[in-house]
Nucleic acid binder design. Sequence first.
DNA 1: CATCTACTTGACGTTAACGTCAACGTTATC
DNA 2: GATAACGTTGACGTTAACGTCAAGTAGATG
Lengths: 132, 132
Amino acid sequence: MSEQTYSIGEMCADFDVTPRTLRFYEQKELLFPIREGQKRLFTQRDRARLKLILRGKRFGFSLEHIRQWLNLYDLGDGQVTQLSLWIEHARGQMDTLRAQRDELEDAMGELQQLIDVADKELVSRTASKAAE
Amino acid sequence: MSEQTYSIGEMCADFDVTPRTLRFYEQKELLFPIREGQKRLFTQRDRARLKLILRGKRFGFSLEHIRQWLNLYDLGDGQVTQLSLWIEHARGQMDTLRAQRDELEDAMGELQQLIDVADKELVSRTASKAAE
DNA sequence: CATCTACTTGACGTTAACGTCAACGTTATC
DNA sequence: GATAACGTTGACGTTAACGTCAAGTAGATG
């Protein structure tokens, strides 16, 4: 299994992005396709990273934040010091995610309350209409 | 209780934004301060909306998306048709929030796994150090 | 009355994240 | 060997969301 690769076109089709976007991500050091002559060949690692990038974007993170986040997925073989530093960063990112999730649940709770009120109102109005 | 109001300076201090930002939000019809002569007076409604705006931004929503979202918080006294339309939109927004929350939990799960691995690795290395 | 403070309205500048277009290179297909 | 399909590198354009700066207003204060 000598590592499958993908052309830029395939990547675009698979992830619904434009070539420009992939080149841009490479320039920003979010992706690291290999070169075969001129052409870029994207690896499985690039695909995994791209998934994370697109998800991070949906969370509203900047590409720079995402880049740092991605580094967490390349643990590597550092020293104990490096490792505990890594864990610290990872915990920081976890806190960020947790905070955002909590805020989302707050927002959902509030909105659900409004929906409940509106629902009751709708039912009562519909009932009064039916009573005519 | 004749509705308390706030100057732009107070708003900036309370919400940690710049005057430019508030004027920009007004121009984009996200806020509707009253005028006293030239000056803007922000109401409680504006403050509630601003809170939602800033939260929405943290979720990564565009101001335009947020604007539509905010409209959900002004139910008003429409017809039954209007009301059920409102409910539909609100449910749509709920779905959006829910999807984002679910994705966040996925991301948290994955990251937590990495942390667990790293943690064990750290412990084992620390232990081997201690055994020297 | 001069000055200070807080506020106003333009109007142009900036950054992130791409879009778009021109000009060119490489297979491979007719 | 022309042409199409797919890729490349600049380089300038665009949009959202403000920042920044100039010039003016309006009320309070020494």
